[in-house]
């Protein structure tokens, strides 16, 4: 690809001109990461309680703590890189992070793009909404507005089952979709048990769960072809599940033990 080379040269020149010395973060193996001494982990910061910003604006949450545990295990510094729902996979594939601990639901479509570890967290996804509205299954979505975060698991699930006259409104993130529900712009939304628990503390009795869409396991993701790194992560997860460390983090952040379908795996 001739054009591509030119572009790289151009970008290189631009980078030099701008005085940047940031190298690509393209570590594929445990050894590379350990040699560099840092691991770059992408995580969400707008997905409480998994990924949040703390009071001083630093990434925190369950995902951040799992990443911390992993970095400790690797014996390297942790560099947390905030990503967003729609851009987390591009971030990984374009080498800006080594690993995603970004509440990424394990789906067949995503499995074609990235390699997943065994589950480290799990959520159940529901159609959720106005308590006065009776919806018991997909046919109840007919003619309704349903808010979802674009490209989220609930987006995929609802798109699959919704009748053609349901109006799925796609927002940039979960928070905007919650906002649409709370402000009454949509009577329904696709939401996880975690988001639902938060909405219920915020606005008790206004909403209820309509029906379950999916049990969703979340995995740590790496670039395809990083088998050795993935093996390490799987072995690490097996250990922290067995010794209760992962469960403790889950208790701390989510307010309950790891779901059984996550804890049991491997």
């Amino acid at each position: 690809m001739k054009l591509n080379k030119k572009l790289i040269a151009l970008a290189g020149a631009a980078a030099l001109a701008a005085g940047m010395v940031a190298g690509p973060a393209a570590a594929q193996s445990v050894e590379e990461i350990q040699q560099r001494g840092t691991v770059n982990v992408g995580l969400l910061v707008d997905f409480p309680p998994f990924g949040i910003l703390d009071q001083s604006g630093n990434p925190d949450g369950y995902d951040a703590d799992v990443a911390r545990l992993l970095a400790e295990d690797l014996g390297v510094e942790l560099n947390l890189v905030p990503v967003t729902g729609p851009n987390r996979i591009p971030y990984l594939l374009s080498n800006q992070v080594d690993i995603l601990v970004a509440s990424l639901g394990i789906t067949p479509e995503r499995d074609e793009q990235v390699d997943f570890s065994q589950p480290y967290a799990g959520i159940e996804i529901f159609v959720f909404g106005d308590a006065n509205l009776e919806v018991t299954g997909p046919e109840g979505l007919s003619g309704q507005n349903i808010a979802v975060a674009r490209a989220s698991t609930q987006d995929t699930a609802i798109t699959e089952i919704a009748p053609s006259d349901a109006n799925i409104q796609r927002f940039d993130d979960d928070a905007s979709a919650v906002q649409a529900l709370l402000s009454g712009q949509t009577p329904l939304m696709g939401a996880s048990n975690v988001v639902i628990a938060q909405i219920n503390t915020m606005a008790p009795d206004r909403f209820d769960t309509k029906f379950s869409l999916r049990q969703q396991s979340q995995g740590i993701a790496v670039r395809p072809g990083s088998d050795e790194l993935l093996g390490y992560i799987n072995e690490f997860l097996g250990r922290v599940k067995a010794d209760g460390q992962l469960n403790a983090l889950h208790e701390e952040w989510v307010g309950g033990p790891l779901p059984e379908f996550v804890a049991e795996t491997e």
Binding site: L7, I8, L10, A11, G12, A14, A15, A18, M20, A22, G23, P24, A25, P90, Y91, S94, N95, Q96
Partner: peptide
């Protein structure tokens, strides 16, 4: 934002936004 990254230049949000 996406262009600098696929060209293999490590970027951050500051660089992308400022550029």
């Amino acid at each position: 934002y996406f262009g600098l990254s696929i060209m293999g230049v490590g970027i951050n949000l500051w660089v992308a936004a400022a550029a």
